[in-house]
Amino acid sequence: MNNDTLKNLLKNGAIWGFIVLELVFFEVAGSWWSLSDNAFMDLDNMLLLLKQSAPIGIIAIGMTVIMINGNIDLSVGAIFALSAIVMLDSMSWPFMEAMGDGAIPLAWLFALLTGCLLGFVNGMVVWKTGVDAFIVTLGAMLGYRGLVFMYNGENPTFHLNWTMVDIAEANVLGFETPALVFLAVVLVVWLLMTRSIHGRNAYAIGDNREAAVNAGIRVGPHFLINFVLIGFLSALSAVAFYSGSGSVNPNDGMLFELWAITAVVLGGTKLTGGRGSIIGTFGGVIAIQLLRKGLGHIGANSETVNLVIGSILIIVLLLDRQLNRKGAEELKV
């Protein structure tokens, strides 16, 4: 029993151990090689880190839900970009301009509805056609990105509204708006997955779809809800990010799906579904961002960052596989 608890702690807490390791390493390495004048584990630095990890973090939380449910969504980056365009472009529509700052919440609403709608389309196609989510969202990724380019060609879409920027950069106890949104999303979705009926059924469907169907659970609606949720969160991520920046390029959000999946997998969620946690993904997001910042802190080239993250992802999954395989061998007996 004691052994079990230890193993569980190792498995579920591995990501947090990794984060501590990163913190210590970069702190020590930074001062030892005197590559940086600042301490790494500085409060402001950490708060900034949380803010910077918000755009992908918010999406990764949605991706966790999708993957626990046994699906995947590759179109999140395109949804992110398209929602951002809708938000910024809508601000310059004549009736919106006439409303002044009153148009801001409306612009947000348009962006969020765009995300929900695109997610709804994904979910309906997966539900009604039974085509694998990988294929459906791969098509959606290309298609939605096509819409992004149709909207404004190669040109950036921009609209700067200083009230919106103020809101985006508002600061509560040191947390800026994107960080707060991220934390709120983590909390709400964590509650959804651990406490709600929908969350329970999502785990069951991802783990054993046939048994879930046999228990009278309707699989399709749960898929749909989760695709709408990740669409919403992709748009929310865009809202949190572009309210401050005010300009979106048609290539923005590319590869976001892969970064989100990387964070989710690092956080211990299984690609096959049925297992994973929101808190784990939160850890995965932080770990990746720490690595980026940390490598910068000790003066590594920005080109090396991706190489290191990629290697670490593979090493972590290899370790996880070893742990789990041992478990499986024991189980069979």
Binding site: N208, A211, N214, I217
Partner: peptide
Amino acid sequence: AQGLVLGMNCRDNITLPQVSDL
């Protein structure tokens, strides 16, 4: 393959068909 959700705990497996009423 058809009856149990193997990764879930015993309680959740038993209440699976009626959890939406609880």
